[in-house]
Design a protein around this nucleic acid. Structure first.
Lengths: 358, 358
DNA sequence: TTGTAGGCGTTATCAG
DNA sequence: CTGATAACGCCTACAA
């Protein structure tokens, strides 16, 4: 609980000098520096982040908005925790703290207030809603010039700073993997069309099929809501037409697993299983029986990247300790563009191979 | 960006009065109040949380320490995200913001500095290490009188504020469920003994067996590290003795699923599967094939409770907006004790029933 | 290279 | 009931 004044006294300098030494600003004689450091050390002085923030009118906090996750787990906790870890890792490197907020059921979060109240200097939105209110809130953020980044979602017609994965390519890869093995009748269980995410996947599927000289058969396109339950539901339609379906590509692992479960419930034996490919490569994928092939999404890296973009994009609004390292991890990524896509990758497991299914 | 002074001018009062109205302190004439609110509204005035924190020397932040999770997912993201949600929900109710921090690989976090720097007013530690450094750091926290709460872990010999689930009872229930069905030779795959958590489970297992007139057969006690991989490893020992093992209880779902996988890899058919019970009732449990019976742990509620204890325990150190609601959700819980246990519950699914295994 | 002093936006104390 | 006015602890020109 030593104060800065005590340190100054003990070191025989002014408080300003203490401050300068501790912040490493301005020219300081080496001896003075040493004396201050020594005194500070001896007294166990710890500067108040609060006072510092106040004086600089910068909180040093990076806001992270997580979606409201109803008890029915629509999304896997996996991907949020991965992204959060990535964000946290990069934030720490830059001396930023993470202020985590959850959306609530009905209401749209007032993002701008967070900035105006000076609780945060920048913010990353993981679970943006897909309604008009949300868009308006984000547009306001943009209008007022607050640094923010949207993850895993694209707002068409806007040029928000966004970080996403290349879901078009991911889906294309998944489809090609199936067509390359000779599968012809591929059911695609997509997520709700409101998600830009889902739209991207659909495009990738179309592309992949087209490359293999096929078109998407509309009756093989199903829509779930990314929950396992919706996969189970889709399984009923799929089971009915099992003789004409030889593969299933689902827009996330949970739905893929749901379909597997649904088929099993209906007595479909594993030998008759179509090939399966999921999406996200969440931990559930390797838990599935058979182990689920899946498209890997670099959630952790996406988190890191979002922070980097924020730091580099906001000229001084967010002050990083080591801004130089901002691009370290992503040498190939274009920062200039407001929207950055990270590459996806197909992980092949037993579920999509003719051989090797357990 | 309106300042408080502008509001004061527009309302024709002093800044102090504006402050009083907005903070709801002191007696205020209704008309004055109205005028201030109106002016404030019209100017879009938002008080700076930063300045307020500074003046009160209270950050309004609740620190949450998450464990360092290496890429190899030892623990399910599930349970951290559940706890975090519970914490977040309760924190929001009390006007607290969440400052999330991740432990790093080798180093012990300097908890007291967080308080001294005034970044947080209280803190919840989810992933405390099990080494001497960590204990020392927490002891210092205690010594300096900072409000904190440890979750999902018990430090014997200390009287830290802790929130945990009743793992003794949970394990007892699991075992009784098995013995009640006539299973006699139950393998128990526990986690590392350093975790108080694992010790509790062992005690519960002993208790359950004892109630059924049995004792724990040492050769049926296995130790994993809570990863799926370690379950697979244990499966090799279990497979060898499959003729004498008719049930498996694992200390978490991942290991249980790992054992299932390991047995399958070794060609054990599902008809020959022993009964399985896992622990945590994570989302993986219902993804398993067959669906995994598991002990449900109220992670979300544990998170809520931790916040409640912090608010109620620290007389004013953490100021909650609605301290009265602190005990709302847990009427049966004893707050006085530094360690609080929440009840666990067995969820029975196909994996542990003679009938109904898919 | 270092000291001085003003300012940051609130809260809180003390008169009135 | 309301208005001044000191803190709060640190940062940063500006001076020296």
């Amino acid at each position: 609980m030593a104060s800065r004044r005590e340190v100054a006294e003990l070191a025989g300098v002014s408080e300003a000098t203490v401050s300068r030494v501790l912040n490493g600003v301005g020219p300081i004689r080496e001896e003075t520096r040493r004396k201050v450091l020594e005194a500070s050390e001896r007294l166990g002085y710890v500067p108040s982040a609060l006072a510092r923030s106040f004086a600089r009118s910068k909180s040093g906090n990076l806001g992270v908005v997580l979606p409201y996750v109803p008890k029915a787990h629509l999304f896997s906790a996996y991907f949020f925790s991965e992204m959060l870890s990535g964000i946290g890792s990069k934030a720490r490197d830059n001396g930023l703290d993470l202020l985590v907020m959850f959306q609530t059921a009905g209401e749209t979060m007032n993002y701008t207030d967070l900035f105006r109240r000076q609780k945060i200097d920048a913010c990353i939105i993981l679970g943006a809603r897909h309604d008009q209110d949300e868009l308006a809130a984000i547009q306001q953020l943009d209008r007022e010039g607050h640094p923010f980044c949207i993850m895993n979602q694209h707002f068409a017609g806007e040029s928000f700073t966004e970080v996403d994965a290349d879901h078009v390519e991911g889906s294309r890869l998944a489809i090609r993997h199936l067509t390359d093995q000779g599968y012809r009748n591929i059911a695609f269980l997509n997520g709700p069309d409101i998600y830009s995410n889902s739209q991207d996947r659909l495009e990738g599927v179309r592309m992949g099929l087209h490359e293999a000289g096929m078109e998407l058969e509309p009756s093989l396109l199903f829509e779930g809501n990314y929950s396992r339950r919706s996969g189970i539901d889709a399984a009923s339609s799929i089971a009915e037409r099992l003789h004409e379906i030889d593969a299933v590509f689902a827009a996330n692992d949970r739905m893929a697993i749901g379909v597997m479960h649904g088929l099993r419930e209906r007595g479909v034996r594993i030998e008759d299983f179509p090939a399966f490919v999921g999406y996200d490569d969440s931990d559930a994928a390797e838990m599935a029986v058979p182990a689920l092939s899946s498209v890997r999404v670099p959630f952790f890296e996406m988190g890191e990247l979002a922070v980097s973009k924020l730091i580099q994009g906001s000229h001084g609004a967010v002050d990083a300790k080591t801004a130089a390292s901002a691009t370290d991890y992503h040498p190939n990524v274009i920062f200039d563009s407001p929207r950055t896509l990270l590459p996806t990758e197909l992980i092949v497991r037993a579920s999509s191979q003719r051989q090797g299914r357990i």
